[in-house]
């Protein structure tokens, strides 16, 4: 009966994942492999960036950035997507059994430290070696274009591509990712947690469900579970470096603005 409970938990988290995230790996892979009805518009230089801004992103227009330099405009739009994903992750976290019964301060702490790790894990779903989907899958921005931006903006995405290529080699699907993301959120060693043992117990249950699910979903990948645990450590490093870069941009780039929600998350993070 314990195995049935874990299977039912995996199903529940998968449903919560599909319900709360606008984009998922199945949708993204269909677009990236040319199976979508309309192929994404490719952004590979300043001209195609302008065209995309005029035609693709009117719904997510950001006030006052039209006349700023391209690097700043891209940075601001990345923030919009991040804010939206934090909102989706918060709703997803609330679907984890017992999460909403945790001390409210602990809920805040788990999200503060977990959202960027979860976000970079899910970002891999919309990436391939040549670029990533933008504007809800309607655009594809090339990796080379991002590398061609001026410093320090050209340093933002490359580490995420490097992580994504290794992560995507594990060939996880959305059902695996739903449990992986839940396990990231329920990390009992985040600074300042009050009820550590309660969170550790919750994570243990999710991790058991993940191990069982991987066993049936990837019967031939015998080292997948330990590899995924290692990825959790890699994601922490990736977020630490990202947070340092954002602080640097905030200090040196007078024209950039950090969204209040992201400011809250980055403040006193590491």
């Amino acid at each position: 009966s314990q195995m049935a409970d874990l299977k039912s938990l995996a199903k529940h988290m998968f449903e919560a994942y599909l319900k709360n995230f606008n984009m998922n790996k199945t949708k993204a892979r269909a677009i990236l492999t040319g199976k979508a009805n309309i192929p994404p518009f490719v952004i590979h230089d300043m001209e195609t960036l302008r065209l995309a801004e005029e035609n693709l992103v009117s719904k997510q227009a950001v006030n006052g950035i039209q006349n700023k330099e391209a690097e700043v405009r891209i940075f601001q739009r990345c923030q919009c997507t991040s804010v939206e994903t934090v909102r989706e992750l918060t709703e997803f976290a609330k679907c984890i059994p017992e999460f909403i019964n945790l001390d409210l301060n602990d809920q805040v702490t788990l999200l503060k430290y977990g959202v960027y790790e979860a976000m970079f894990a899910m970002l891999a779903s919309i990436m391939n070696k040549d670029g990533l989907l933008v504007a809800y899958g309607n655009g594809f921005m090339t990796r080379e274009f991002l590398k061609s931006l001026r410093k320090p903006f050209n340093e933002i995405m490359e580490p995420k591509f490097e992580f994504a290529m290794k992560f995507n080699a594990l060939e996880l699907d959305d059902s695996d990712l739903s449990l992986f993301v839940a396990a990231i959120i329920l990390s009992g060693d985040r600074p300042g947690l009050v009820n550590v043992s309660q969170i550790e117990q919750m994570q243990e249950t999710i991790v058991q469900a993940l191990r069982l699910h991987l066993h049936s979903n990837h019967p031939d990948a015998i080292y997948l579970f330990p590899k995924l645990l290692q990825k959790m450590a890699d994601l922490r490093q990736l977020v630490t470096e990202h947070a340092q870069l954002v602080q640097k941009i905030k200090k040196t780039e007078a024209d950039t603005f950090l969204h209040p929600l992201l400011q809250e998350i980055y403040r006193d993070m590491y």
């Binding site: 804010v83 939206e84 609330k94 409210l104 805040v108 300042g192 969204h259 929600l261």
Partner: peptide, 21 residues
Amino acid sequence: LKEKHKILHRLLQDSTSPVDL
């Protein structure tokens, strides 16, 4: 901690709460 994370706190309490982009 809640005081320092007002928007996160609001998102946790109320899913319909708007977050301006």
